[in-house]
């Protein structure tokens, strides 16, 4: 499959007028996120990787988005959403419980830890979790559905779409200050936005996307 925004790299705008210093600093810091577990334990970290692999599966990339590292970094920094459901512990603690519970569920259903399951088996468990049908005591009273939509899957999705590679993938214009946008109507594109492959003409899109600054 050709990519929808072939040749578009949002990072090509980094030194242009669409990025201010603060944005450059923030995104540079994110791209420099240390690899490996810091908040999680080694095994927890591997489980997060195996979760991210199912929740935001990536095409083969030379430099894949380090979803687990980004989740780890956020929890390490004590990131909170500003609310939690009655009976839910703060995010870090909830994450640890959830990872343990997933292993417990995986052991009960398949006799192996979550990260060692096949992709279909992991998907199967995650479907049950999403529908709130997991109720092993290891959840310690947390609703598996809430943990899925408001914590685990959410944090993973946020981490993935915090990364410029994902921004390029969906053809988003990316950071925009001081320069914003001029052409905003139907089917209108500024020369500094991603061009979509139209009528199978990838070459035309690539040509335009190469000129994005």
């Amino acid at each position: 499959m050709t990519e929808r925004y072939s040749g578009y790299d949002v990072m090509s705008k980094r030194n242009g007028p669409s990025w201010n210093d603060k944005t450059r600093q923030v995104v540079d810091d994110r791209l420099a996120t240390p690899r490996g577990p810091r908040f999680f334990s080694e095994t927890e970290y591997r489980t997060v990787e195996s979760l991210a692999d199912r929740i935001v599966p990536q095409p083969h990339r030379v430099d894949p988005i380090p979803v687990a590292d980004l989740v780890d970094a956020r929890l390490l920094a004590g990131g909170q959403d500003g609310f939690r459901h009655l009976g839910m512990p703060p995010p870090g603690e909830a994450w640890r419980r959830a990872l343990a519970a997933l292993d417990a569920e995986a052991q009960a259903a398949h006799g192996a830890n979550f990260r060692h399951l096949s992709s279909p088996d992991r998907d199967g468990l995650l479907h049950c979790m999403h529908e709130g049908r997991l109720d092993h005591p290891a959840w310690q009273g947390m609703s598996s559905q809430l943990v899925f939509t408001q914590l685990v899957a959410k944090d993973i999705v946020f981490a993935y779409y915090a990364h410029p590679t994902a921004w390029s993938e969906i053809g988003w214009g990316g950071p925009a200050s001081p320069r914003g946008y001029v052409r905003t109507g139907y089917d209108r594109r500024d020369p500094w936005e991603a061009a979509e492959v139209k009528d199978g003409d990838a070459a035309a899109a690539i040509r335009k996307n190469r000129r994005v600054r």
Partner: peptide, 17 residues
């Protein structure tokens, strides 16, 4: 910054139930 994650610094994220 022009960044969704970073700008969460604007929100009241103190603990609430």
């Amino acid at each position: 910054a022009s960044d969704e994650s970073h700008q969460s610094k604007l929100y009241w994220t103190d603990d609430r139930i």
